[in-house]
């Protein structure tokens, strides 16, 4: 790709515009106009983030006021009923998510527990695999191994999440049931492993970047002191890159919490606040996806679903920000790529 034809054309243009004063003025006007257009476009990204927060929040906001308005009777969704358990006259209090019933119950705990369970499985499954594979390709592997692993990760990252959800639902669930003999095919474990498949590329990419950013001089100093290749990798390179590896895990966590289709298809979607990983679960994201299609616009259920959206947005925003800042600081500390 040579620049000379473009350069020659520019030169001609420059000479021509120098010849004519009015043309130069027009060029200046075009210049200002383009500058303004470019700045406006750049503003779009900021506007998008602000609008997302405002408009998802706006639909949830009336929940706050509804608690104070008299005459709404049973339609009130108070903060206490969101955070606390449902109380019964004849039974002990229980955490219930049951938005469609004579008395809708909106306790968030089962959804939060479900989200944490699937996310935990995903991170425990994907984290070690992705980090070890990143150490392999950046520290040990001969060229041909990297040339197999890296495209694999790129392909995996390119698989739409609905396909991973489909795979977890149709294939993985049956295998796991046969392997563990559990009662329900669709549970936190199935969904978590499916989710892990989506998270592996994120953790791998960030971890591999962090390992590659460790300057060569660190490794050379270690070899000079007589350390072997694996000692250098484990004691020098990995510790130096550790903040970046953690950032990768954090970003993977953020993705796992917000991921929708995989958990919607493979988690069983029963809102249970129980410990076993082999119980069905319902996550925050899957709840929105499963229920938003059937709610009354502007009703309390609709508002609560947008509130779940606000929770997801704020949470992933915080996790991503922390991850992003860690990566940036690490890169500054290690002085960029060697």
């Amino acid at each position: 790709m040579s620049s000379s034809p473009a350069g020659r054309r520019t030169a001609t243009t420059a000479v021509a515009s120098a010849a004519s004063e009015s043309r130069r003025r027009a060029a200046r006007r075009a210049e200002r106009l383009f500058g303004a257009v470019v700045r406006t476009a750049a503003f779009a990204a900021i506007l998008a983030i602000v609008l997302i927060f405002v408009f998802v929040g706006r639909e949830a906001l009336p929940l706050l006021r509804q608690g104070q308005a008299p005459g709404h009777g049973e339609e009130i969704v108070s903060w206490a009923s969101l955070a606390g358990p449902t109380t019964y006259p004849d039974r002990p209090p229980r955490y219930v998510w049951q938005p469609v019933s004579a008395v809708p119950k909106y306790n968030l705990l089962p959804l939060v527990v479900g989200t944490l369970k699937t996310t935990l499985v995903a991170i425990l499954f994907a984290g070690p695999l992705a980090v070890l594979a990143a150490i392999l390709t950046s520290e040990f592997a001969p060229r041909w191994v990297s040339q197999v692993v890296k495209p694999t990760i790129e392909l995996l990252a390119g698989i739409p999440s609905v396909v991973l959800g489909f795979f977890a639902l149709m294939v993985l669930a049956t295998w796991l049931q046969g392997l563990l003999g559990v009662r329900y095919r669709l549970n936190a474990l199935t969904a978590g492993i499916g989710l892990g498949l989506a998270v592996i590329p994120i953790i791998y990419t960030v971890a591999e970047d962090a390992l590659a950013a460790v300057p060569r001089s660190y490794r050379e100093a270690s070899y000079a002191l007589g350390a072997s290749r694996w000692e250098t990798a484990v004691r020098i390179v990995v510790p130096a890159a550790l903040p970046g590896i953690f950032a990768g895990v954090a970003l993977g966590f953020g993705r796992a919490v917000g991921e929708t289709m995989i958990v919607l298809m493979a988690s069983g979607n029963a809102a249970l606040a129980t410990w076993p990983l082999t119980d069905s679960v319902r996550t925050l994201s899957a709840t929105i996806a499963a229920e938003l299609g059937e709610v009354v616009f502007g009703g309390p259920h609709y508002r609560v679903l947008f509130l779940l959206g606000v929770l997801l947005f704020v949470f992933t925003f915080a996790v991503n920000l922390a991850g992003e800042l860690t990566v940036r600081r690490l890169r500054e500390r290690l002085g960029g790529r060697a």
Binding site: A48, L51, R58, E59, G258, T260, F306, T316
Partner: peptide
Amino acid sequence: AVNLAVSNLAGVPSIVFGLFGLGFFVR
């Protein structure tokens, strides 16, 4: 600010985009 917004936009869960599309574009 633009850089920060871009990297955070990349991390917003896709279902939140769905909520936003419904709340902002549709409604």
